[in-house]
Amino acid sequence: MATYSTSEFRAGLKIMIDNDPYAIVVNEFVKPGKGQAFNRVKIRNLKNGRVIERTYKSGESVEAADVLELEMQYLYNDGDSWYFMDQTTFEQYPADKAAVEDAAKWLKGEEICEVTLWNGTPLTVAAPNFVILQITDTDPGLRGDTASGGSKPATLETGAVVKVPLFIENGELLKIDTRTGEYVGRAKN
């Protein structure tokens, strides 16, 4: 079992706590002048993203989490799993619904995603920051209305629904920021 000493703690390090993998966000050295030294860490649960605070006695060892972040290409989904391919080994990894939860609605195929593997299995999948998707359904555009600031829902080819300005037409290609789920602009063909 690989372990880390508290002296190796730094932001980004992946450790195990209560059988869950965590990433260190902030590591702080705390020591009363005459007292015990501690490492106080803010850590992010890699399964659910929740950030908590914990403290170790300095000098202790902590189990390392077998976590890897890899760029992988999204291939297809068969209804149960979403399949991703490691670009260097060409190995394929099935990701379950929980892992792709936030990313799936932006993926149509061939996108390069950041896949976090835990013990060899996809734990989370992050869609590319920006994707270009076609509108399959929206109300007819209001020509010339580029200034009123109003918006309407538009359904994209992946099924995701985003808010778009009123002048956008059915069938147009849009650039979307997947981190906020917001329309960025028209994509050039």
Binding site: V30, K31, P32, G35, Q36, F38, K57
Partner: peptide, 11 residues
């Protein structure tokens, strides 16, 4: 005891 007191006090 001393470590526990240090922890609670410093944190």
């Amino acid at each position: 005891r001393s470590v526990l007191l240090d922890f609670i006090f410093s944190h």
